[in-house]
């Protein structure tokens, strides 16, 4: 497992270096002071990560379970496209008098949950006449079938689809950080404020940092997928 994580992360290094280089060049062209800007962006990343990571983990796990169970998962998956993270962030920002942190996480997590539910539900439906039927034919049934086979298959599909969810989650996090006044001050907020102020070096540095975060998260998700599903270990 560790070697798989290392391999995935190492594979992302060229992309990260490329991003850093591009950010450096653009920021340097835009004006002086790009080095401190890059430093500030990097320093703000952990706060963003602290918003994204629990949301992704929670969303994927819950979504996979709901998707495999069908019912509410199918409904959630069906309305998923109607609620991108930034829209939820705006709605929650208006209505939130209490617990803004929880609502912020929810705005990021809900779209990921919906996507995971769709993928897990599809995986389960696809396995119904193959893997699941074969297991039933061997006499496996009930909760053993759900916990030992359906859920792992759904989880594998949900984790395999995290690639696009990561990009959406980072975008949603930017909206949350910018709209929720208190409690969130990460790279997303830095990015929006710099862009509004027309501060090119800071905005580019923050965006590069967010992209780097996405690349890194993608690598980790790839490793996680490989850990759950041996078929994904090959590539």
């Amino acid at each position: 497992m560790l070697s798989l994580v290392l391999r995935r992360v190492l594979a992302a290094v060229p992309a990260l270096l490329g991003l850093a280089l591009a950010a450096g060049v653009v920021a340097a062209l835009a004006g002086p002071g790009w080095a401190p800007a890059l430093g500030a962006a990097l320093a703000a990343l952990p706060a963003t990560l602290a918003l994204i990571l629990p949301a992704l983990a929670l969303g994927t796990g819950l979504g996979a379970l709901l998707g495999v169970l069908g019912g509410s998962g199918a409904i959630l998956g069906g309305v998923g496209p109607a609620m991108p993270g930034f829209l939820l962030a705006a709605v929650f920002a208006v209505t939130s008098a209490t617990a803004p942190v929880l609502l912020g996480v929810a705005a990021v997590a809900l779209p990921a949950t919906a996507q995971a539910a769709v993928l897990a539900g599809r995986a389960r439906a696809g396995a119904e006449d193959t893997v699941l039927l074969a297991a039933r034919g061997r006499g496996v049934d009930g909760s053993a079938l759900l916990w030992r086979l359906s859920l792992p298959l759904g989880l594998s599909a949900a984790v395999g689809g995290l690639r696009s969810a990561v990009a959406g989650t980072v975008t949603a996090a930017v909206a949350v950080e910018s709209l929720f006044g208190t409690g969130f001050s990460g790279a997303g907020r830095l990015f929006v404020e710099a862009a509004r102020a027309g501060d090119a070096s800071m905005a580019v540095a923050a965006l590069a940092g967010l992209c780097g975060l996405a690349v890194l998260l993608n690598a980790l998700c790839g490793a996680l997928h490989g850990w759950i599903d041996p078929r994904a270990r090959m590539a």
Binding site: R163, S164, T171, A195, G198, A203, L207, A214
Partner: peptide, 20 residues
Amino acid sequence: TALTGLPLALALPLAGGLLG
């Protein structure tokens, strides 16, 4: 393929900010 994994949508607010 690499680009689809990035939060590309953020390039638009960046452009918006830089263009003034």
